[in-house]
Design a binder for these strands. Sequence first.
DNA 1: GCATCTCAGTTCCAAAAAAGAACTATGTTG
DNA 2: CAACATAGTTCTTTTTTGGAACTGAGATGC
Lengths: 165, 165
Amino acid sequence: MRWGELKREKCSVARTVSVIGDRWTLLILRDCFLRVRRFDEFEGRLGITRHVLADRLKKLVAAGVLERRLYQARPRRYEYRLTQKGLELHPVLLTLAHWGDRHMAGAKGPPVLYQHGACGHTFAPVLTCSACGERVEARDVRVGRGPGGTRDARIASFEASASRG
Amino acid sequence: MRWGELKREKCSVARTVSVIGDRWTLLILRDCFLRVRRFDEFEGRLGITRHVLADRLKKLVAAGVLERRLYQARPRRYEYRLTQKGLELHPVLLTLAHWGDRHMAGAKGPPVLYQHGACGHTFAPVLTCSACGERVEARDVRVGRGPGGTRDARIASFEASASRG
DNA sequence: GCATCTCAGTTCCAAAAAAGAACTATGTTG
DNA sequence: CAACATAGTTCTTTTTTGGAACTGAGATGC
């Protein structure tokens, strides 16, 4: 399977992976959330080749995750900013970072801490259920076929017994 | 930068990406959460080449995300199962899938639905703050240097004003 | 007013990784 | 004994990446 074919898969993970399932893309997005916006700053921070950086930025713009915005007229210079669609990747990056904090950090502890503006506390991200508000555990999630799905031996077709949260 | 160098970066996103930042790896993990465990079933479902599949499984085992377990003695056959470390990637996959549901689904709607066993409802994952329990928004998170971090122009060194949740 | 600098790319070649298909190992089944 | 099953490995071709140099459009320094 090639990159292009992936986005045609009937699976939201596959489709998401077709956009961000690449190590450079994920690191670019990490920096976007740290307010990095310019080509040279991405290059300098990431140690990515200009070639690949240009390619990934182009793909992210095409996917609607970043927008290329003119910030200077003469000479024309562009920067890259997260769109709303891109901003909504925040939970992905945050859970990714949290897993790394838990499982890949050295003896000294996590490299960064996150502070929740609303309450002022340093926090860890917790995934909860939109319906009941309780914490969601891997073992306690059942997967069933949705309206846009096709048959899959691993996915039950439960008659959605319930409302959406 | 090569794959191997990535895990030495002092960033939890980079370190996590060094383990799962690859499209095939993410799709393999998706299937793991659907209880796929055998080489041939991964191959058949994913359309991955055996070569790459063997490589990715080996890396995931080396990273402690999967374990290779003997399930039949003669001939010796192994299957791959999520470890606790691997199970804790569930929030990553769930947020990934949710983003795809919101932004990449076709007109018919999302391909799968998630049911929360505890409450029985179909739900969407919501990221909340471990300290106050409220929803966490991208714009409302500040990043500061943690105990294992080094200087970074983009990361403030806030004197953690608060407890950890 | 020419050389140098800035920033956002593009181009070129060599090296690494992935696709695709066939082959191996170890046994079981008909 | 031939065919089947499962989990890989090996081989060759194609694609992607790394690395470094080059381009273009102006701004700045001397």
